[in-house]
Amino acid sequence: MPKGVRRRYLALKIDSEEVFSSREFMNAVWNSVLKLYGEYGASQTGLALIDYDEEKRFAVVRCVHKAVVTVRTAVASMTEIGGKPVAVHVLKVSGTLKALYSKLRSA
């Protein structure tokens, strides 16, 4: 029996005065991954938005566990969303959503 895909959940904090929609945010993340790793590299990340809070400027994205460094690098290299300057920081990384939220609560 083939094993299921191992995934990682990344909690992200958007450091900016502005408010962005989830679509704007994910477009910026995808653009950053594409710029650094190309379409082939981006296709291997399995990137998906799981949770997004506009007001708290907080997001959770999911990726394949082998692509954590790729996604972390792409997210770190983001300097703007829709022409507005931002910094996006990875707060926590976890294997399950439950563990991720509990790590965030205890931090």
Binding site: D15, S16, L36, V69, R72, T73, V75, A76, S77, T79, P85, V86, A87, H89, V90
Partner: peptide, 15 residues
């Protein structure tokens, strides 16, 4: 806004 966490700097070094 250009400051990054230490682990993010380390991730960028993978480039």
């Amino acid at each position: 806004l250009l400051m990054r966490m230490p682990r993010e700097l380390a991730a960028l070094a993978s480039l």
